[in-house]
Design a protein around this nucleic acid. Sequence first.
DNA 1: GCCCAGGTATAAA
DNA 2: TTTATACATGGG
Length: 293
Amino acid sequence: MNLRENDTTIILEKTNNFNIEQILECGQCFRFEKLGDMHYKIIAFGRVLYIKQENDTIIMYPCTAEDYENIWRSYFDMDRDYDEIIRRISQNDSIMQSACEYAKGIRILAQQPYECLLSFIISQNNNIPRIKGIISRMSEKYGVDLGEGYAFPTLEQLNAATEEDLFGLRMGFRAKYIRDCLDRLTAKEVDIENTDRLTAEELLSELTKIKGVGQKVAECTMLFSMGKREVFPTDVWVKRVMEQLYFNGEETDIKTIHSFARDKWGELAGYAQQYLFYYARTLKIGTDKEKTK
DNA sequence: GCCCAGGTATAAA
DNA sequence: TTTATACATGGG
C-alpha cells in the first residue's frame, strides 16, 4: 500500500479489505452521511472527514498527514491483516466463507468508548435510521459546531441536559438510561477509559452497572471501541442468520450462540459476528423477503 | 392500522 | 432460575 499526500488530502492506494460503504453501513457506527456512490461524510474525534473510494484508492479530506497518523489510521484499523483474519475464521466453514466473501471490505473501527457506549444505549430496540437521527439531534443541541457538522457532545456538555431535555430529543425511554450513564461516568463509578488490562468478562460487569446497559450494548461497546475482539454481540439479525445457517433452522438462545461462537472462532469471534451481521441484514436472511444474491 | 428495529428492566412464575 | 411484558418512536 502506497501513501501520497498534499496539504489537506490523503490518498491511499492499493488498499486491501477496505470498502467504505461496508465499513460504515455495517451497523458499528452512526455518525456518517452518504453523499454519493462510495462517498461519505464522517464525524468522529471532533472532526469532519470526507472520504471517497474508487476501487482500491481512498481519498480523505480535509486530512493532513498528521491527522491520518494520529487519528484515522487507527480509527480505520489500517494496520490489521484482514486477509489473515478471514482465512482463520472461515477455514472449514463454508457459511463463513460466503459471509466473508460478501462482506470482505468490512473493517472494525476503533471508535471513542464514550461515544460508542451512548450510541449503543440509544440503539436498543431501535432501528439504524432513527438511531442516527437521535444522535444527530443530540449533537446539534449539545455538541460543538464544526462548521460542516456537530461534534458528539462531551460528558461535560451533555451534563447540561436533564432527563426531560433528553426525552425532548425523541429518544423515548432511553432518556433515563442516558442520564444514568452520564451520572455514573461523572461520578467515576464506571471507568471506560482504562480498559486495556480488563478482560471482556470484567468489563461486562463494569459496564452493566449502568441502567440500560445489558450484555448486547456492553459487547458492542467493547468490540467497537475497546478492542475486545472476542466478544460476539448477538442481535436479531445475528440470531436469525445463526439459527438458519448453523443451527439447521432450529430456534436457539443467546447462551448457546455465544458458546458456539467462542468455540468456533475464539479470539476472532467479533469479526465473524460483524461479517454475519452485514450479510444477514443486507440480504435479509431468515425473513420472508429474503434477497437471493 | 400493523409489525419491526444492533435490548433491557421489571415482575411474575 | 427462566419467561412474559412494557417501553417511545418512526420507517416500511
